[in-house]
Simulated assay, not measured.
Amino acid sequence: MLKAVQLKKTFNEGTVNEKLALQDLSLTLPDGDFAAIVGSNGAGKSTFFNAIAGSFYVDEGSLYLDDLDITFMPEHKRSRMIGRLFQDPLLGTAPHMTIEENLTIAYLRASGHTSAFSRSAEKERRFFREQLRELDMGLEDRMEQPVGLLSGGQRQALTLLMATVVTPKLLLLDEHTAALDPQTAAKVLALTARIVRDRNISCLMVTHNMHQALELGNRTLMMDSGRIVFDVSGEERAAMTVQDLLDRFKQGAGSELNNDRILLSE
């Protein structure tokens, strides 16, 4: 379970570029919850993810993962418990290393091992091959190929597998299909939903697609000006339309959502 308590973060404080990025943001994400987050550029979505991942420390507030206080835990230690995917398929992998080598690094980091495989190497290779086969992209037969030769969709699917090869306590998806073509994006989203469901992973996913925000997972959050202005789940969410979301955003934020990318999403 993730628990964020009254998070606050200001960048460039005391300068003309001062920006209040998070303000009194609180959220509880129980085990197995899959929440989609919608908000305009600058709403604080990626900043919230960076705070959770440990890219910086918040100015005020606390963060807990299960019963562990991670507020001031270094980023590299949090990465053993938190998986993360970015919008750019080029991030998250080493292009000159093979598929197997990338998976090995991800496995070692998440499992806390400090030495390379030895006698168990073949066992791990079989495990990786089985996991890759489930992606249904033929990557199980290309384990010795450099990741840089993969397409964007293949690379993002591999990154998803790397983030979950050891089941994380939390998965952060920062528009992880936005750079993919619609067909590939749909396939990666289906893989995402299956992995999150089958492993009961707590997940936060940023999306600009209003329909996805209502269809994927079991919960929808809307952010504005560094705070959560709307949080819906259950039967109320199931009955909502995109227009309902826009209306509720206006009620919570005090103004209409003004972002063409979101409003024109299919």
Rank of each mutant, 00 (worst) to 15 (best):
F56S: 08
L135T: 02
S225V: 03
D141R: 08
T104G: 00
Q87W: 02
T71N: 00
E100V: 01
F11L: 03
L29I: 05
V58T: 14
Q212G: 06
K187W: 10
S26P: 00
R80D: 05
M137D: 08
Q156M: 03
L108P: 04
T167K: 13
E256L: 14
L27N: 00
P146M: 03
A253C: 14
S115Q: 14
N259R: 04
L2Q: 04
T10S: 14
R219Y: 01
P182F: 09
Q251G: 09
A253H: 03
I228T: 09
T114Y: 14
P89E: 07
M240D: 12
V188P: 10
L91T: 07
L65I: 15
R84N: 04
P168C: 01
I201S: 00
V166W: 03
T164S: 01
F117K: 11
A21R: 13
M210N: 06
Q156A: 04
F72Y: 14
D136H: 14
T28N: 10
L132I: 10
Y107T: 08
S26H: 03
A238N: 14
L27T: 01
L180E: 03
D88L: 12
Q183M: 13
L29M: 11
Y107H: 11
I82G: 03
A21W: 10
D198V: 02
G44K: 00
L90M: 12
G138S: 02
L170M: 01
T220H: 06
I195W: 01
H113E: 14
A185W: 06
A121Y: 06
A116P: 03
V188M: 06
N12Y: 15
R197F: 05
D174Y: 00
E140G: 05
M162V: 01
H76T: 09
A110L: 06
N102L: 14
Q156R: 03
H176C: 06
G252A: 11
E144C: 10
D31V: 03
M137W: 07
R248T: 12
E144K: 14
M81R: 15
N258A: 15
T192F: 07
V232S: 09
G226S: 11
V5A: 11
